[in-house]
């Protein structure tokens, strides 16, 4: 069911008679006290943003926090082992375990309950049922092996089934190889080619949003690097998050890519629908096309607690491509019931 169609049934205009109003009813002559609306103009450097960025720098400097070495435009080596297809089977367990911003137990719990591991901790296989997969499409891309109802799904099909999921198909269609969603995906793609596709899409994203790596964003990127830095103290991260929130409030793009010292690429995003102002979201595009969002809450004492994990369609985030993220899946911490798996 589309929840919007359900909500639409409560539209007051289904029963309410609209008023009549004609052009001559509009009084254009009388001078009134109009509120000045801040219509967006061509994206240029503005004073408010400059002030907020300067304030951020002052705050950082006053706290003795130094910008990371990789501050500034980053050139990614796509042939780097860190992002090679071989490394694309991401070690989620290790990655999250080393992130103090998430309670390791909770994160590991998520992974361990769903998956098998290689000896090095790498995710190896996800065993699910179709019924689970229908509502829990998460994590599939992180795996080398996907087993549905006891039958292993080839890697190429895994990639496709994600695409089909985005286009509204169901796991029932696994036998169909036809792809027809976006220009990028209009072909059956071996899993190993995902990296090249990703590179292509990043380039495309610049066409959609040429300024997505504009200079002012590097301030935020630096802060983000600090947030995800392994060496930054938790308090520093909290400060960086706060400053970054302020930047975003002032109009700095909410999403941007940053590179961590270990080579992973991370996408920072502020949670927009927060019911607590301190709620923050980190999106980790660990594999092409898929981003893992981690939402956690920071209380007044700086203690962080996991609220939810969910996967978001990374293409929409990266490039402004018109991909509906409503197909994303959410796994809330409170919903993680092992009996469901």
């Amino acid at each position: 069911m589309d929840v919007l169609e359900f909500i639409a049934t409560a539209d007051p205009m289904r029963t309410k008679q609209p008023i009549e109003l004609q052009l001559h009813d509009i009084d254009l002559q009388t001078s009134r006290e109009f509120e000045v609306f801040d219509f967006p103009t061509t994206r240029t450097f503005d004073v408010r943003r400059a002030i907020s960025i300067a304030a951020a720098i002052v705050v950082i400097a006053s706290l003795g926090i130094f910008l990371p070495k990789n501050f500034g435009p980053t050139t990614y080596d796509w042939n780097s082992p860190a992002i090679s297809p071989a490394a694309a089977t991401v070690n989620l367990a290790q990655l999250y375990a080393q992130e103090t911003r998430i309670k390791p137990g909770e994160t590991l719990w998520v992974v361990q309950r769903n998956s098998q591991f290689n000896t090095d901790g790498t995710l190896k296989q996800l065993n699910v049922t179709k019924s689970w997969l229908a509502t829990n499409w998460a994590s599939v891309s992180y795996l080398k092996a996907l087993v549905i109802d006891g039958v292993e799904v080839p890697a190429a099909k895994q990639l496709w089934t994600e695409t089909s999921r985005m286009s509204g198909s169901t796991p029932e269609d696994l036998n169909d190889y036809t792809i027809g969603y976006s220009p990028v995906w209009e072909r059956t793609v071996p899993y190993e080619n995902a990296q090249a596709m990703y590179r292509t899409l990043v380039e495309q994203s610049k066409t959609f949003n040429p300024s997505w790596q504009s200079g002012s964003d590097w301030i935020a990127a630096a802060l983000e690097s600090l947030i995800v830095s392994e060496t930054a103290a938790p308090a520093q991260r909290v400060v960086a998050i706060s400053v970054l929130n302020a930047l975003i409030d002032e109009g700095v793009e909410a999403h941007k890519w940053v590179a961590t010292s270990s080579g992973e690429r991370m996408l920072w995003s502020r949670t927009m629908s927060s019911n607590t102002e301190s709620e923050v979201q980190i999106i980790d595009p660990l594999l092409p096309g898929i981003a893992m969002a981690v939402t956690y809450q920071i209380d007044a004492a700086g203690t962080k607690s996991l609220i939810e994990l969910f996967q978001l369609d990374g293409w929409a985030v990266v490039g402004g491509l018109d991909v509906e993220p409503a197909d994303s899946d959410i796994v809330r911490a409170s919903d993680l019931d092992p009996s469901k798996l």
């Binding site: 919007l4 909500i7 999403h255």
Partner: peptide
């Protein structure tokens, strides 16, 4: 979205936020 029929890019304008933010916010509300 449901009553006024706005898509995320239009909602973004109404709110004064980015289109991506509107998408995320709408997705979570749904």
């Amino acid at each position: 979205a449901a009553w006024d029929g706005l898509d995320p890019s239009e909602i973004a304008v109404v709110y004064g936020i980015t289109s991506t933010a509107a998408r995320v916010r709408l997705h979570r509300a749904k």
